[in-house]
């Protein structure tokens, strides 16, 4: 019915993220690419557990008991928290690199070192 649109969107977002990580030399943009890949994984997991016409798996005043899959949503929750942790650590390392080298360009950092 939806022509797999969420899955295709997840694949496209993951491709954009990996391309950003590979072809951008700016460390902050590389971290953004990593965040994009994380988001695409979240989108993929959530859309993997969706049933047509199902509701969120919560029984409080639920109109029906046909529910989406709970395990993938729990995995998504784990992924979000770990994504926050890795992003915070990477951004602080980028800030330290900027303090030390005066630039966040990966090529310049390598050149100044040599």
């Amino acid at each position: 019915m939806y022509f797999d649109l969420p899955f295709i969107a997840a694949a496209v977002i993951a491709t954009i993220g990996i391309i950003t990580m590979l072809f951008r030399r700016n460390l902050v943009k590389m971290i953004m690419g990593l965040s994009l890949v994380e988001s695409s994984v979240n989108l993929f997991l959530v859309s993997l557990g969706y049933r047509t016409g199902a509701i969120a798996p919560i029984f409080t005043n639920a109109p029906s008991v046909r529910m989406a899959m709970p395990t993938v949503q729990a995995m998504t929750l784990t992924n979000i928290v770990i994504g926050i942790a890795t992003t915070a650590l990477l951004l602080s390392l980028a800030m330290v690199i900027y303090r030390k080298y005066g630039t966040v360009n990966a090529d310049d950092v390598r050149k100044l070192r040599g």
């Binding site: 939806y2 649109l5 899955f7 295709i8 694949a11 491709t15 859309s47 969706y50 049933r51």
Partner: peptide, 13 residues
């Protein structure tokens, strides 16, 4: 990325 994904049915896991 599209090869494993294109066969899945959205809404019918």
């Amino acid at each position: 990325f599209l090869a494993p994904v294109i066969g899945l049915d959205f809404g019918e896991p």
